[in-house]
Design a protein around this nucleic acid. Structure first.
Ligand SMILES: [Zn+2]
Ligand SMILES: [Zn+2]
Ligand SMILES: [Zn+2]
Ligand SMILES: [Zn+2]
Lengths: 150, 150
DNA sequence: GTGTAAATGATATTAATTCTCAGTTAGGGT
DNA sequence: ACCCTAACTGAGAATTAATATCATTTACAC
């Protein structure tokens, strides 16, 4: 199922959060960008329609969205944190280039066999998983086939 | 093949880095820990054998190890960055209880099919992955069968 | 041993994120 | 429509991770 901005607004309400115009703007700013964005970029976008918003509100909105698992952290190699709106309710995993940080989403992970085995062996009821695969993207491989330092 | 501290020291030399006692200590501190560690934890460990080392040197050593791809960033959800020494030995993953935190290790993840597919579809050369599965352990399931949110 | 470029450690600086608090507001109840 | 109140906001201060600077020290090639 796909997550639209309206659907997300409904989820906020369901969880007792107020739907303020600031939050709605932050939400739209993240949801409308295909790539992952950092707080400063979100701020730039939001201030075009809401010029007086403060950074604290942006950070608080991001935290709220993260608490609701509507947004996820990606690309750990930048100085500031990067976020990406979840596009669907299904799994959402990242393939990250360890050199340039380029990130590709994928949803088919097929860990069900592994999870079944773990349930059988340990008695755990599996709720979910965190999976991130890293490697080197085609561009970075082409640029320097043998990753040499300095 | 397993990467030992000695082997890594050789790699440093090959790349023209000097092998200072400080670097050796940082290297040992990361390599000897099973889980990922952040710079502050590395500092604590290193100062037990090298009390005068400064944080700048720790950060510089980490950067050098990262440039050589001997260490990789993991666990993007912490405030400080976390690092894990690369081991070519087998994978090391966790099954974590989301309620009580009990953790079980497992090593057979079998993501090779998935990684092959991603390489075919994206051209990425896969270097590794982060995988953590979470759920509720048998004890916690017995204690309260229905988990309630918030 | 000597020379020298690289490395160290103390300190200052930068920049991201969080905290504080007085004023504002969304949204339920009347 | 109006009130109430807890939730929210924005400005600025505080905290914290990470990097830069620079005088001193040191690994290591010769
Ligand atoms: Zn998945
Ligand atoms: Zn790349
Ligand atoms: Zn694995
Ligand atoms: Zn448990």
């Amino acid at each position: 199922m796909r997550l639209t901005a309206n659907k997300i607004a409904g989820i906020l309400r369901q969880h007792g959060y107020r739907l303020t115009p600031q939050r709605h703007a932050v939400l739209k700013a993240i949801a409308s960008s295909q790539d992952c964005v950092n707080p400063a970029e979100i701020c730039t976008r939001v201030r075009q329609e809401y010029p007086t918003i403060g950074m604290a509100t942006i950070y608080r909105s991001i935290k709220m969205l993260a608490d609701l698992s509507l947004v996820c952290r990606v690309n750990p190699d930048s100085r500031s944190r990067n976020y990406l709106m979840r596009r669907s309710m299904s799994h959402h995993h990242h393939l990250v280039c360890s050199q340039c940080g380029r990130t590709i989403d994928f949803t088919h992970c097929d860990l069900s066999q592994l999870e079944k085995r773990l349930t059988r062996e340990t008695g755990f009821i599996i709720e979910g998983h965190i999976l991130e695969i890293y490697g080197r993207c085609p561009e970075c491989c082409a640029a320097s086939p043998v990753p040499n330092p300095r």
